[in-house]
Design a protein around this nucleic acid. Structure first.
Length: 273
DNA sequence: CACGAGACCTGTTCGC
DNA sequence: TGCGAACAGGTCTCGT
C-alpha cells in the first residue's frame, strides 16, 4: 500500500484518532501482543514486549516511508511495506483480519498493525537514526532546493525510474508516485540521470513535489482491498492506465517492466532516450 | 556503482 | 465453475 502520502495519512490518523474517540498522543501502553514473530525487526520479540508497557506516546511522525512513534524512552519505527496498515479500534473486527502486532493502551484502545503479506516490519530503538540515517532527503522538506536536487541527480548514471525508487536518493517515492512524477515532468523512465538538463531536473523536482502533495491532500491512493480511505487513485494520469488515453495528448499509455516493477508512461509525451 | 533475478508472503484478478 | 498464472503500494541480498 504505502508510499509517502499513504504513510503520512496513516500517521495523521493515529494523531486524529480516525474512527475512535481520540488519537494516541499522550496515551500509555499497557502491553504488546505479537502474532507473527518476524514482524519485529529489532529488538527481539521478548525484549519488545518487556519494554513497551508503561511508555507514553510523546509524538507521531513520518520519515520517508517510516512511521515514527516517539515514546518516553525510545522510538517505535514502523514500515508498512506492501500491505501494512495501522488501525485504531476496540473490536476484533475493526482491528483487521491480519493483525500481526497489537499494542494495547491503558485506556482500553488498541493499535493494530494489520499486514496480510507479512512484509511489514517494526523496530523499537533508543536511536531511530540507526535505521533512518540510510535515507535520502525528504522530497517535501523546504530545505531541499531545486539546485540541491540537481546536484544529487546529475552525477548518477542510472535510469530515472530506478533512481526515484532508491530510498537513499530521495525518501518516500514508490511505484505510483514515480510513474506519476515522470509523466508530469514528461521524462521517460529509462532516461539516464546524468543526461537530464538543469531545466528538466527542475521540472522533475517540481513534479515530484506536486504529485506527493496532491497525494497527501487526497489522503493517499486506495488501489485494492489493502488500504481504504484515499482518493488519489481517481486522479492517476499514467499509473495502471495501460491502454487508456494520456490526459495530455490522448496517446494510449504503455506499460513496461523495469526492475521487476510495472512502469506506465506515455510514449509520445515521454519520448524514449 | 549499476543491473537483474530471486526471496520474502498472501490475496485478488485474469485467461483459458 | 475451476485452476493455475500473473500481478500487487517494498526492500534486501546475491551474482555479474
Amino acid at each position: 500500500m504505502p508510499e509517502l502520502p499513504e504513510v503520512e495519512s496513516v500517521a495523521r490518523s493515529l494523531v486524529s484518532g480516525q474512527g475512535v474517540s481520540k488519537g494516541i498522543l499522550g496515551q500509555t501502553f499497557s502491553k504488546a501482543v505479537l502474532s507473527w514473530n518476524k514482524t519485529v525487526a529489532l529488538p527481539s520479540a521478548a525484549s519488545l514486549k518487556r519494554r513497551i508497557p508503561g511508555q507514553q506516546v510523546l509524538g507521531v511522525g513520518r520519515r520517508g516511508k517510516f512511521i515514527r512513534i516517539d515514546l518516553s524512552n525510545e522510538t517505535i519505527l514502523i514500515h508498512l511495506r506492501m500491505s501494512g496498515d495501522l488501525i485504531l479500534g476496540h473490536s476484533e473486527k475493526a482491528l483487521g483480519k491480519h493483525s500481526r502486532l497489537r499494542f494495547y493502551f491503558e485506556n482500553g484502545l488498541q493499535m493494530s498493525f494489520n499486514d496480510p503479506r507479512k512484509f511489514g516490519r517494526v523496530w523499537l530503538l533508543e536511536d531511530p537514526e540507526e535505521v533512518l540515517s540510510k535515507l535520502g532527503p525528504e522530497p517535501l522538506d523546504s530545505s531541499l532546493s531545486p539546485a540541491d536536487f540537481y546536484e544529487r541527480l546529475h552525477p548518477r548514471k542510472r535510469q530515472l525510474k530506478a533512481l526515484l525508487l532508491d530510498q537513499a536518493f530521495l525518501a518516500g517515492i514508490g511505484n505510483i508516485y514515480a510513474d506519476e512524477a515522470l509523466h508530469a515532468a514528461k521524462l521517460h523512465p529509462l532516461r539516464l540521470a546524468h543526461s537530464i538538463s538543469r531545466k528538466q531536473s527542475n521540472a522533475l523536482f517540481k513534479a515530484i513535489q506536486s504529485v506527493l502533495e496532491e497525494g497527501i491532500r487526497r489522503n493517499g491512493a486506495s488501489i485494492d482491498w489493502v488500504y481504504q480511505g484515499g482518493e488519489f487513485q481517481n486522479y492517476f494520469a499514467a499509473y495502471q492506465k495501460t491502454g487508456e488515453p494520456c490526459p495530455r495528448c490522448a496517446t494510449p499509455i504503455e506499460r513496461m517492466v523495469l526492475g521487476q516493477r510495472g512502469t506506465h508512461y506515455c510514449p509520445f509525451c515521454q519520448p524514449a532516450p
